[in-house]
Design a protein around this nucleic acid. Structure first.
Lengths: 209, 209
DNA sequence: AAATATACTGAATGGTGTTCAGTAAATAAT
DNA sequence: ATTATTTACTGAACACCATTCAGTATATTT
């Protein structure tokens, strides 16, 4: 009886240790992805950093993409947290402005993170619903806000889906064009945050009745 | 005298042949970039396709990036051609709508081309002005159109730079989110062209007085 | 005919993701 | 207590990648 309990305790400890290792790998990968970018971070580099062999990583993650998905999951949560703390004004229109500003700022402050969330190519074969499940929560935060605006008849537009798509596309367009250095003809590097924020704010204000 | 002329003729022929080879490499690369994407096309693959050794390519191009820049140049010209043929309505507002539609359609019809023009990462160290010089012409086409609109007081906005930035960001946002499969929660694959065109058109119409 | 210049090769260098036979330690079964 | 089994991990090997460069073969000049 006692032996069995002990064995169960041990096996649980093992399970915990296994999760810890997975977590160790994940956090090392996250750190390196953010510092050097996804492409420049190799499985070998990660293995070196945590002082294990490359093969070990494949005991916990199917491939490099799966590690990316894990980090993306975190990133979406981080963005959602940002929305919840920085875009909670009662007035849905003002909240919409906060969401836009928060999104753009998030992208500018976390370029590598933004990159692996929305820009870099990664086969969506494995987990087709990852972005629906994770990014989905962020998108729904926007949807809820826009729905409130439309319900209260505060906007010129009435098509919720289209409004949401436009807001997201505008914010993503601004951030991603900048992250790919395509706005050099428009503004100096140091002016970019202001210019992008102004463009986003300007767009949303056009929506208001 | 005749000998000298002949030599000059020969050296010119050689020069032509050298340009031809550079062109041969460029067009093979372009074709493969469009079919398989930039990342999946290797220097070895290109060398195989034109039946030369990998080393030969480096006699004509400094590195793979330089080959990318060459193809980007072409791509910008192609887009500008599109604008000139498909967006030439006299009425600047209608022309603006044509530009938006043309841009989005271009991205959807040439996904790999769009990718290497605006989405993939490539060090901008070498030729910082490439996008200013090439993409610049496309952007100026938009700028000219918007300037006409604003001059004739047809838009609600008056800030030319901001309007141009918004238009571009909206179009790029729509196209690039789709190319990275981020719009699955919004619309079915086959509905995407309609949805994106409607969003773009809807946005521009919001701008009109 | 000898010297030089040109065009090209393909093996080598140092990287990448991924696999897998082998090892060593811990646990379970006898 | 001894044997068998499971578990965790290794690191060399595989098939790629971009890039370099000594060597070769052909063409041109001297």
């Amino acid at each position: 009886m006692r032996g069995a309990q002990q064995r169960m305790g041990i096996s649980e400890r093992k399970k915990r240790e296994k999760i810890d290792k997975k977590e160790l790998i994940r956090s090392a990968a996250m750190k390196m992805f953010l510092e050097d970018g996804y492409a420049k971070t190799s499985i070998r580099n990660i293995a070196d950093a945590i002082e294990y062999s490359p093969g070990t990583i494949y005991l916990y993650y199917k491939d490099k993409d799966e590690l990316l998905y894990e980090v993306q999951r975190d990133a979406y949560l981080k963005m959602l947290e940002d929305f919840k703390t920085k875009a909670k004004h009662k007035d849905p229109v003002k909240r919409l402005l906060q969401i836009g500003k928060t999104y753009v700022t998030f992208g500018l402050k976390n370029p590598e993170l933004y990159d692996l969330m929305f820009i870099i190519r990664a086969p969506m074969n494995v987990d087709e619903n990852l972005h629906k499940d994770n990014g989905g929560e962020c998108f729904e935060y926007l949807l809820d806000c826009l729905e409130s605006c439309i319900d209260k008849d505060l906007l010129k537009v009435t098509d919720l889906q289209q409004a949401a798509l436009q807001c997201w596309a505008m914010a993503h367009g601004l951030v991603s064009l900048h992250l790919r250095c395509r706005l050099k003809m428009i503004a100096e590097e140091k002016e970019i945050p202001k210019v992008l924020a102004a463009a986003m704010e300007g767009y949303i204000k056009q929506l208001i009745k």
